[in-house]
Design a protein around this nucleic acid. Structure first.
Lengths: 147, 147
DNA sequence: ATGATTTCATTAGCTAAGCTAATTATATAG
DNA sequence: CTATATAATTAGCTTAGCTAATGAAATCAT
């Protein structure tokens, strides 16, 4: 064992695995009446707190008009709220409402339960491996962005 | 160390990591004039060989009409070819053309190079961890689908 | 202070990709 | 031979992405 791992092969393998894992979850969200874009935006607002449209767009890696419309739709559904910025009359802060919070939590639990169930029979050692790998992947993602 | 890992936390961590890694790659494809849906379909045809529309749809986890149109677009761009099935006049086999192959390889290399570069400074041990985790993630994805 | 530039957000209009329902053509079963 | 099932397409809808144009506010340079 312990044949020198080929970085290119590892990149390929982890890439496929990420794609397949996320694809397998795609179906799990629909039952809630939540779509991936909204779930993702809610996630950012949930964890980072209120953000302007611009910052939300940046966080999501999409252009500003895309978020502008998404927020309009979510505001109509009472999932988020707008608040005028005090210092800059051009900016609006978007924050998640209790309803949005609840929906996000349900969606999140939905996904995580699916994964957790799939991990159910793993040894502690394998879970440890996954935990370490997750951190390595986060770092890699950061590095890709900065490249 | 070696505190019993919480499966729920691991699920969460690996989920985020997969999202962030793939998001970080999103930008890398555009330069080629290839979009994610086409790249993904080409990938399936590249590795699995010619498939009917139905099987391609199943492999991609989308409905048949979605692939039907995607194939029409890709055929227009000479990325794939249609061939009538011999045994069943209803079926058409879709195969990747040399042009499609070349485009796919460029796109793939683009992505993989981005990841590979990001993994550049990892120890062999960490690469090993990622390789193992990739396999675990593939299994988890399969389990989620079957659940 | 005023005029030019930049920034934040929205709107309009386009494209791509997903879906369902309906249609056509072919296979298969009773 | 008729009925049913399957493969693919088409039509029509939705959502999410984009760019370009616009409006409104802030900043900067005279």
């Amino acid at each position: 064992m312990k044949s020198k791992p080929d970085p290119q092969a590892v990149a390929d393998h982890i890439h496929s695995a990420a794609i397949h894992l996320l694809r397998s979850l795609k179906g799990k969200d629909k039952m809630l009446g939540i779509n991936p874009a909204q779930l993702s935006a809610l996630s950012v607002l949930y964890f980072l707190g209120p953000l302007t449209i611009s910052r939300l767009a940046a966080a999501e890696g999409v252009k500003l008009p895309t978020i502008s419309r998404l927020v309009k739709d979510m505001a109509r559904g009472q999932l988020v709220m707008r608040e005028k910025a005090e210092n800059d009359a051009r900016s609006t802060y978007i924050s998640i409402t209790p309803k949005g919070k609840a929906l996000f939590e349900r969606g999140r639990i939905n996904r995580l339960m699916a994964i957790t169930t799939a991990l159910e029979n793993l040894t502690d050692e394998n879970l440890e491996t996954l935990a370490k790998a997750a951190t390595l992947m986060e770092n890699a993602a950061k590095a890709v962005c900065e490249a």
